[in-house]
């Protein structure tokens, strides 16, 4: 049986709920996003309604069974936006519940290993972007940070900056996915956000940008120049949003 969900995290967890409820077998249960799945003649499909309550039950079960760390693996792997995630999560959980509390350490189990690898990829990129995200100050005092992550990490970044830049109004904008994280000095929320035509910088913005560029240039030691190493740490795909590399 192929279960289809709407692509949201809650939708996937609702699917997991239905699958466990129907006692789906590990090798037979599949879980895909409805819009991505290609109908096959031989497979039965079932559209799963996203139900908050069911999703919640699954989430708290994961949390209670595998702790904060375990839940983090499950959520981060979701952010990798991999089509195989739903089925992989189902298979991992099937086995994880048998193994017990520290199941996500059992890297000898292939499904669990693949899931943690997916999660680690998200972890790595989000950590890198915690440093590489650049805000520009706009005329109206809002700090604006556009970026295009490979994985959908905006919620992780928003959480970090909610604590860090707590006394300024900011917007983080995933221009590829059209999502914005808006923070108003109390909390942040995510909402769809289209691209801007043009933005007016604050009066001192250009000055600080060029001070920063100067700084980056001058802090390098000429005798140790090593551009490949620089690129290795800071892949070129991020450069278009980096003040100092423009």
């Amino acid at each position: 049986m192929v279960y289809l969900h709407d692509g949201s995290f809650e939708g996937i967890l609702s699917g997991i709920y239905k699958m466990f409820h129907a006692k789906a077998k590990i090798d037979e249960g599949k879980l895909y996003e409805a819009s991505v799945y290609q109908q096959s003649f031989f497979e039965l499909t079932l559209n799963v309604e996203t139900e908050r309550e069911n999703a919640h039950r699954v989430a708290s079960s994961i949390y209670e069974s595998f702790g904060h760390e375990g839940f983090k693996y499950v959520y981060y792997a979701y952010l990798a936006e991999d089509d195989s995630y739903g089925t992989l999560l189902f298979r991992s959980l099937k086995q994880a519940y048998k193994i017990g509390h520290q199941a996500f350490d059992a890297l000898g189990v292939e499904d669990i290993r693949l899931l943690t690898q997916m999660a680690n990829k998200v972890s790595r990129e989000s950590h890198l972007l915690l440093g590489l995200l650049r805000f520009v100050k706009l005329e109206n005092g809002i700090y604006y940070a556009p970026f295009e992550p490979t994985q959908n990490v905006i919620s992780i970044l928003a959480q970090h900056f909610e604590e860090r830049l707590a006394d300024q109004v900011w917007v983080i904008h995933d221009t590829k996915r059209g999502i914005g994280a808006f923070y108003d000095k109390t909390q942040y929320h995510l909402a769809p956000l289209n691209s801007f035509e043009s933005l007016q910088y604050a009066r001192d913005e250009v000055a600080f940008q060029s001070l920063w560029k100067d700084y980056v240039k001058h802090i390098a030691i000429e005798a140790r120049r090593n551009l490949p190493l620089q690129r290795q740490h800071m892949p070129k795909k991020y450069w278009q949003f980096l003040t100092e590399m423009k």
Partner: peptide, 26 residues
């Protein structure tokens, strides 16, 4: 942490923000 909604926090793991031309982190 940053309890009073002031500016800034520190992360136990540390965060690199850029890399200069000698490949050292900034």
């Amino acid at each position: 942490g940053n309890a009073n909604k002031q500016l800034g926090s520190t992360a136990a793991a540390g965060i690199c923000h850029s890399w200069s031309e000698d490949g050292r982190c900034i």
